[in-house]
């Protein structure tokens, strides 16, 4: 094991292999709350087909998922639930903020809306849009895959 963790040809190859394996077997947890869920449905279904990217299989248990899709506005009442679900996920895990409400709060600048989920949990990828079009979601997914590939075995969180 010792030599595997030192930088070298073998480890960089292993990193690439691990990254490749992870990026094409994304088990997502859709935390769907609001309007963005409609576009999430559209993206996941046959027309846009997220499954082409190896991310077609939603796991409805946070313990079996590795990418948390936060889809829709998070209110202050909902925030503790989101945090808890994030904590229940096992590493390595990534978080996607889907839609502008999760990125910044969007135009819901009010007493009940969390102004961006990054005030509660770390976020790896922001997909803006109100709601983002399926094409934007797919682009976001590809960017997330790039990120996963680059990270290799090093997991930040």
């Amino acid at each position: 094991m010792e030599e595997l963790t030192t930088p070298g040809v073998l480890t960089s190859q292993l990193d690439a292999a691990v990254g490749w394996a992870r990026k094409y077997s994304i088990f997502q947890y859709p935390f769907v709350t609001a309007c963005c869920g409609m576009e999430y449905m559209a993206t996941a279904s046959s027309h846009y087909d997220m499954d082409r990217f190896g991310a077609g299989f939603p796991r409805f248990s946070p313990r079996q998922a590795d990418v948390l899709f936060v889809v829709g506005t998070i209110s202050h009442k909902m925030a503790p639930v989101l945090k808890r679900i994030y904590d229940q996920m096992t590493s390595p895990k990534w978080v996607v903020a889907f839609g502008v409400c999760t990125c910044t709060g969007g135009f819901y600048d009010d007493y009940s809306t969390v102004q961006g989920i990054d005030t509660i949990i770390p976020v790896d990828l922001y997909i803006p849009g109100c709601p983002p079009r399926p094409e934007a979601v797919l682009q976001g997914l590809m960017m997330l895959q790039e990120k996963i590939q680059k990270q290799g075995r090093t997991v930040a969180k």
């Binding site: 609001a34 209110s75 009442k77 639930v81 135009f107 009010d110 007493y111 009940s112």
Partner: peptide, 21 residues
Amino acid sequence: GYLHRAFEKHAENEPWNNVIP
């Protein structure tokens, strides 16, 4: 109430046409 987004409060703070979004 987990998706309370203050629609009615926002409507009081926006011009008539801006409430439509």
